[in-house]
Structures are given as C-alpha cells and as structure tokens.
Design a protein around this nucleic acid. Structure first.
Length: 566
DNA sequence: GCCGTTTTCGGCCCGACTGTTTTCAGTCG
C-alpha cells in the first residue's frame, strides 16, 4: 500500500471516530482530505518536496501537520490518542455494508460490540434486533454482509471488470432505449470500485425487474425507482440509475465524474448563474441542456471531453479553448509490440498467436520471448533464438495479412547491462529491456541502473518501466523524470504494458513521458492468444495519459515502424 | 477542520434508499 493510501485510511478512521462521537463537520473535513490524498497522481513524497501540503484542497494547517508527522515518524499521535479511548475495531466494523459510525456506536454502547467476531455472535444469537433502531431485517442483512466483509478485497482490476460489464450491458440492452457505463469504468481507471450504469427504460419493459433477476446477480442490495444496486457473483457491486431520456446526457456526465472534474464543470455553470446536476443544466427552473453530454458541455462553452481525461488536470481549460488533444483510438493501433509464445513461457504456439492477432485485425505482432545467456525461466539461448528466427521466417512467408516481428525480451542486470550479448540481440529485429530482479534497490541506485540501461542503446523499448503489479507489488523506487530524459536523449521507447495487473507506465506517467518528448509503445505482454485482447487496456491507458497518434509507435504502418525501430 | 470575487466567521453537497418508526436517521455514493 502506498503511503498516501495509508494516511488516507488513517484520516478516514479519524473521521469515523469523530462521527461516532456526534461531530458533524470535522468528519467531513477529514474525509475530504483523505479523498484529496487518494486522488493525487504523484507519490506523496514527491509532492512534499515540491510544494506545501496546505495548498492542496481540503488540507489545512491541522491535517497537514498530521500528514507531516506521519511522514516523519510513521504515526499520527492524534489518531493514537483517539484510538486509546476506543476499545473497538472501527475499520473492521465499517467494512460491513450498511454499518456506519452511528450504528456501530449504538451497538457498542448497548450490547458491547467491539469486533466483527462480536457482531457475528450477536447477530446469530438474535441480540441485534432488540437494539433500538435495529430490527429483524437489519440483523439479517448484517449476518449476510459480514460474510462478504470478511473476504472482500479492495477494488477490482479494470481488465477483470470490463468483460463483466460488457456481459451485463448485453443482457440489459433489449430493455433500454439508451444504456451506458459511467463511473471510473468509463474513465478506464486501473482499478474499479463498482460498476455504474445509466439507462433509459424502453416503454413496456420492467428494466428494474429484469436487472435484479439476472442469473449473474448474487444479492439485491437496494431497489428503488431511480437507483438499484446489486452484487454480482464475482463480488462486484453494480449500481443502475434509471433516468428520463432528456436527462441521460446530464446523468452520464454526473456519474462519469471524476468528482473533481464535476466540481470544476459545475463552477462554470454557476458562473453563468446556471445549475448543473444529474438531471440537467438549468437556468432557474428552465432546462438548458441534458439530453446528451455534448449538449451539456457545449452550452458551458466546452468541447466534449473524453471520459479518460476527466480528472481535472487541465482538460477543462483546454476544452474551453478548443485545444483538447485528439486522443489515440483503438482503430489507430496496427499491432502489438510485446508477446510470448511457447518458445519461452507462453502457452500458445507461434501460429496460434498469429491467429489471435489476426482476429484483432493487427497488421503486425512482435514476438518477444525471453532470452538469456544462462537458460533460466525458459529463456532462449543463441541456438534457440536462431531456430526461432527461421521458424518465424517460414511462417511470415506463408501468411500475407500479418507480419511477425522477431523480437526478444532481455533482463536488465543490476549494473544496467543486458544479460544477453550482441551475438544474440543482433539475431532479432526488436529488443525489449526490462527489470525482473533486484527490484528493491534504493532510489539512487535504481535510477542509475535504469538510466545506464536506457542510454546504453542495447535495446529499443524499456518494457514495463516501473515493475509495479497493481494491488500486489509497488513500483520500483526510481526517478522517472531522469529515465524519461535519458529516453528522450537516446530515442529509447517507453512501453505501456497492457497486461491487466501491470498497466505500466500508468496514465499519469504516460503524460509525463510525452511531455518529456518520449515515444511510447503498447505491448500486451500476452502469454496466450487470449491475452492479446488486452491491447484495449493499453489504448485506454495511453488515452488516460493524453496520448495522441504521434506519441504511440503502434500507430505506424509496418514498414514505417521497422524503419523507425532499426 | 477547511475555506473564502458571499474572506477571518459561519457556513459546510445532496439525493436515493432502507428500515424502523409514523416523519426520519443513517448509510452510501
């Protein structure tokens, strides 16, 4: 977990404790600050170096001091103090859906609930329904939700959620005149908390009933006229909003977010003495816009803004001047620049990979099996690389609609040199360099290592540059600005690795790389032909980084690309 | 606790839904 997330969790917990005590506005202040921390694109440590925390929205003197204390000492004394007076595990208890600080306070004072375990026992023994404000239904819900809270992970990977959402949309489509995904899923964030869907019911249908009775639905959480929430068997929550046709665009804007983007857009409305909410754009009581997103944006003097960049990072100002970038699109992508076959650790043969790429209408596919001088992890040695070259030549001569680029992925050693020599790399047309071991070097050593590697000219593309695995492994500690500078000088390409748990570079760093004058490639890192579909995630990540066609080398036609790579 | 072309005090987003209670508090997003 990143430091900013840890601190944000602590601030949220402080908010919970204050709320239990009946405070009204302090909790909100702490939650706002926590929200600000979570939405920061950069590591907190970098921000502290450059600017004053007090300049961040929602963070003032008191909370800034607490954050600084944590960065210095690893704890917040105010939190410890508050916690000392509490003998219950509030974080654990609030993880139960439907239980908030107030109810927990009551359960604690009335029947002494301190933990999830206590709660479970009390619910089973039927003691909860007798507490004032609780009843049989609540007790039953608590029992059901405890089981979920115990196993619940945090958020879901984008790559996991997209197919579920597409399946769902397909099933609901027949009952709607308009239906679209909103929320962080539409913005293509790398992880997704829940699936938000906006729909307009087709006359004569009961969308609500169809939705809640789908076989993929595990539990109906709430069911109303306008909003219904369910949990799917896969564990993810889905919120369906039903709106009128003339509200659809406004609702889509509102529920797509991000929150910070919405706030800024709403300010524009307010400047004109209009009001923007999920039902439309209004002048007094008169509707000015709302049917489509374009209409809402245009009335506010903005061009339509692609969802992926609605993060309040300058897109609104550009949209007001007609200066938004034309983001790269899936249709612009002509091929995939990292994949593995069964020659190394992939599952499929080269022919099967070709077939997979063909189904995606690629013009080229780079096969970049692992290579190394000492044969580990199925890495190819010189002899095998040569054999593979022949095999690829043979297949290339037999197919016309697609080119296989013979590449390889080599390890960058601790000293920044590749673990394969020129004798091997000269056998192929594309060399990727990547870090797979010694990931925990300190910042200076790691920066030296990567800068040395990038400047060496031994490889063309730096694959999955930060080495992070979402929800699993932190990015390596490296000064990316220096790496980008080196990449720009040496014309080395940075990869956007599209594998669902990598998305590395991420959108934020893609934008920084582009600003540093670096070109990018998209590679799925596919280890089977099915993985080739992750190319969409790579495009989404590129778009989140404001990438245009000229920034992404996969938009080049085959010949142009080969000329560029050599 | 934060914030300010309504600025140093007095506000703080708000609508939807549930469950319990009978007009509303708590939770969620």
């Amino acid at each position: 977990m990143t430091i900013k997330k840890k601190i944000a969790d602590l601030l949220d917990e402080i908010a919970d404790i204050y709320e239990m005590r009946g405070a009204q506005f302090k909790p909100r202040a702490y939650r706002n600050a926590a929200q600000t921390l979570r939405s920061l694109g950069e590591p907190l440590e970098d921000i502290v170096e450059k600017e004053d925390l007090r300049d961040l929205p929602g963070i003032g003197e008191s909370i800034a001091n607490k954050i600084e204390e944590y960065l210095k000492t690893g704890h917040i004394s105010k939190y410890e103090e508050l916690k000392r007076d509490m003998d219950l595990d509030i974080r654990e208890l609030t993880s139960v859906e439907g239980l908030g600080p107030k109810k927990i306070q009551r359960l604690h004072s009335e029947i002494g609930i301190k933990s999830l375990e206590d709660l479970k026992e009390a619910a089973r023994a039927g003691e909860i329904q007798d507490v004032e404000g609780f009843g049989e239904r609540t007790q039953q819900n608590i029992l059901e939700n405890i089981a979920f809270a115990e196993k619940k992970g945090d958020r879901f990977l984008l790559g996991f959620v997209i197919p579920e959402a597409e399946d769902l949309i397909g099933k609901l489509r027949p009952y709607c005149t308009r239906l679209e995904v909103a929320g962080s899923l539409r913005r293509k964030r790398e992880t997704i908390g829940d699936i938000d869907i906006i729909g307009v019911e087709k006359k004569g249908n009961d969308l609500l009933e169809e939705f809640t009775s789908l076989d993929i639905v595990d539990k109906v959480i709430s069911r109303g006229k306008k909003k219904t929430s369910v949990r799917l068997h896969g564990g993810i929550q889905v919120d369906l909003r039903m709106v009128e046709d003339d509200q659809f665009g406004a609702a889509l804007c509102y529920f797509t977010g991000s929150k910070k983007h919405n706030i800024e857009v709403r300010k524009l409305a307010k400047k004109r003495d209009w009001k923007l909410n999920e039902y439309g754009l209004f002048h007094r009581d008169e509707r000015v816009a709302g049917e489509t997103e374009e209409e809402v944006f245009n009335k506010l003097g903005l061009d339509w803004i692609p969802p992926e960049i609605r993060e309040n990072r300058g897109e609104i100002e550009l949209a007001s001047k007609g200066g938004l970038p034309r983001l790269v699109e899936r249709g612009d992508i002509k091929g995939d620049l990292q994949s593995h076959s069964d020659w190394s650790d992939g599952k499929n043969t080269i022919e099967e990979m070709v077939q997979g790429a063909r189904e995606l209408w690629h013009d080229y596919l780079a096969l970049t099996d692992h290579a190394c001088e000492i044969r580990i992890a199925h890495g190819l040695d010189l002899k095998r690389v040569k054999e593979q070259g022949k095999e690829i030549d043979r297949i290339n001569s037999e197919i016309e609609d697609l080119h296989i680029i013979h590449g390889l992925e080599a390890n960058i050693k601790k000293d920044g040199k590749l673990d394969v020599g020129k004798d091997i790399t000269q056998e192929v047309d594309l060399v990727l360099g990547s870090i797979h071991s010694s990931l925990r070097m300190d910042r200076k050593e790691m920066t030296d290592r990567m800068v040395t590697a990038v400047r060496s000219g031994e490889f063309r593309i730096l694959a999955h540059p930060t080495g992070r695995k979402i929800q699993e492994r932190k990015a390596v500690d490296v000064d990316l600005d220096k790496v980008f500078e080196a990449a720009s000088d040496s014309n080395t390409i940075m990869e956007i690795n599209a594998y669902p748990d990598r998305l590395d570079l991420n959108g934020y760093n893609v934008k920084k790389a582009i600003e540093a004058g670096v070109k990018l490639s998209i590679g799925t890192d596919a280890h089977s032909k099915d993985h080739l579909r992750y190319i969409d995630l790579g495009v989404a990540t590129a778009r989140r980084g404001w990438a245009e066609n000229g920034d992404i080398i996969n938009t080049m036609a085959f010949k142009e690309l080969m000329g560029y790579l050599l």
